[in-house]
Structure formats: structure tokens, C-alpha cells
Design a protein around this nucleic acid. Structure first.
Lengths: 172, 172
DNA sequence: AACAATTGTTGTCGTCAACAACAATCTTTC
DNA sequence: GAAAGATTGTTGTTGACGACAACAATTGTT
């Protein structure tokens, strides 16, 4: 088993207890077949986490051709809807950190989708705008995002999706 | 503004357009007051992400005294409900990578909550068990996790929480 | 016995959140 | 109006995390 020296020494008493195996193929030591989740089933957090992973993967897959990830999409959308916002305003509206947004904008600016314009009223801050190319691109991104949203509806059901949006509306 | 040399040079035309400011305090260049999210509002992924962040933070806060995070809790719960499982089985049941589970178990084993017992039927694998201390601890963790779950119910509503669990049940 | 597959492990890489520190620039206060 | 404090964008560090690749030990297959 190669070297287990990395782990802090903790001798394992070889007390492997009752282990009724009934595995047909090449399965794990425990042949329960179905693995119960016990308490986890009642936890909203677990389900939400799994769902969020699925939904992000589908988003990334659907927008892979344009190489736009969820966070980038959210930034572009907010800037598009509110031109002239400062980085601070965008960051706190989306719940992103200033420091993180810097890199996101660096990337989007390199791709010439966004422009940082120095504000004259407050020369510390940048007024964020979509470039002409950015606006055109965003329109395309929104079409793909809508397609992704249809995937979600297919996955959990049209009505369930709407209900879910309603339930979580307070987290805008 | 310190050095912006790090970013790939991209000259910014100083064309800050119309900017009517009506800020009472120290606000951003754009005084819209309310920042619209536009298309984001119709995206389940955005709401789910924000909710998931909130729910994880509350979980961590509620279980801070015992220093147990969501992933650790899920691992302990599954092992507790299915003693003798292999690492492979736990990993794929929870959607965690083998490599990641190694570190998680290292930590839990160091804290003497979990034991890796070499399987006699397949000497490659480890049968995972909770220690006596692990079982006692898990009982306490479950009480705190239930408290966290009550926070969730208070946040989104009792019925909404149950509806959400039903909608996302396929993601067990 | 030779070869392929599996299990646990280590390592690397890129993403991401959370902080801390800093220069430039406001805002406030005396 | 000058000093002190706060804010904005930026850089850097840290740690959690998923995705991969590689490996030794062990199984399964032929």
C-alpha cells in the first residue's frame, strides 16, 4: 500500500468485525448494495450542494463554446444592466470579494468585453462598462444561459423550478 | 492607485459618460440606489449558489464549537450508517474524489473519530468504522446539525424547506 | 504466469473564499 | 486648510476544494 508514513502515526488495531459479503462483482468490503445516507437525507444543505454542483457543471458545459463561467456571466449581466457601477458596488451586489473581482475583470477586460473607466467624480474608483463587443457577446451568452435554464427545467420539472425560484427569491 | 502594470496593457479611453450623482454618503460613481440583476433573477443557479453559501456558513457557525464542517459531517454520517465501507464506496456515494477523501479521513483519524481497518477479504482496501468516541461525537454533531436545520427552516419557512427537499430529492 | 483493473496514496494544477497589507484618493474634523 | 480617518482598487498569502495524473500494492482475468 505504498507508504503511509505521511499520516501521523496511529496504530490501527486489526479488529475487522462481522463482514457478511455477498458481492457479485468486484465490490468493496461491505456488500450492502445500497448505501444509506441516514441523517443526510433530512439536510437541505446536502441536497442543495449536490444540486448546485450539477447546475454549475451544466452551465459550464452549455456555455463552453463561449468560455464563460457562472461568475463571469453574473458580472457581465450586472454591468450590462447597470453601466457605470464601481467595482465595489458590483462586488457587494454579487457577494464577491473586491480582491476576487479584480482578477475577474482583468480577464474580461483582456477579452475586450468590459472597460474600466476612471471616474471623474471619484478618481479612486473605476466606472465599469461593457464594450460594444461586450454587449453583443452578452446577448449571445444570454441565449445560451436560457438554454441552460431549460436543462434545469427538464431536470427538476418546470413547476418545481419556478417554485424553487420563489422559495429562494430572498437570496437574490 | 499603486501599479496597474500587472494587467496586460489596455489603454482606457477616458470617456466617462453621464453620471448623475445623488449620494448622501460615500457611495460609488453610480448612484442608482438599487442595482438590478436583470437576467440573473430568472436563473436558478444564481439563487441556489447564494443559498448554498448561506447554508454552509450557518452550518459551520452552528458546529463551530465541535469544529466539524459539512463535508466532514457527511463522511461521518455515512460511515456511521454503513460501518465497514471502503474509501472508494464512501467517495462515490458522496461524490467526493478518492484523493480528497484521503485527507478528510487523515484528519478524522487523527482526531480518533474514525478508524481505517485493513480488510481481510481485499487487502487493498480499508474498512471504515467509527471509533467509540466517534459514535458518541456523531450523536452530538447530529444534535447541532438539527439545530442548524432549524435555522434553515426559520430562514425560508418550514413548508418551503420541506418542499425544497422534495424537489431536490433526486440529487440525494 | 502474464496482463489488466482496482484501491489507497501522493502530487500538481487551477479555482475560489477569506484576509491582510498597501498606495492613491476621498471625507471628516479640528 | 492641514491632519487624521475611511474607502477603492490592487497585490499577496493562506487554506479548502475538484480534477488529474502517477504510483505501489493488491486483486482479477486470461
Amino acid at each position: 500500500m505504498s507508504n503511509r508514513a505521511a499520516r501521523t502515526a496511529l496504530k490501527i488495531p486489526a479488529v475487522a468485525r462481522g463482514k457478511r459479503m455477498a458481492n457479485g462483482k468486484a465490490r468493496a468490503p461491505e456488500g450492502d448494495g445500497e448505501i444509506g445516507l441516514d441523517g443526510l437525507l433530512g439536510h437541505a444543505g446536502y441536497a442543495v450542494r449536490r444540486f448546485q454542483i450539477w447546475i454549475f457543471q451544466d452551465f459550464v458545459r452549455t456555455l463552453a463554446a463561449v468560455d464563460i463561467k457562472p461568475t463571469q456571466y453574473s458580472v457581465l449581466t450586472v454591468i450590462g444592466a447597470n453601466p457605470g457601477l464601481s467595482q465595489m458596488a458590483v462586488a457587494q451586489r454579487l457577494g464577491i470579494e473586491r480582491a476576487r473581482l479584480v482578477h475577474l475583470l482583468d480577464s474580461l477586460e483582456d477579452r475586450k468585453l468590459v472597460r474600466r473607466v476612471r471616474s471623474r467624480t471619484d478618481r479612486r474608483s473605476h466606472a465599469l462598462h461593457l464594450s460594444a463587443r461586450g454587449e453583443a457577446s452578452l446577448r449571445q451568452f444570454k441565449l445560451l444561459a436560457a438554454e441552460h435554464e431549460r436543462h434545469v427545467a427538464e431536470k427538476i420539472g418546470k413547476e418545481n423550478r419556478e417554485q424553487l425560484l420563489r422559495i429562494l427569491s430572498s437570496f437574490t
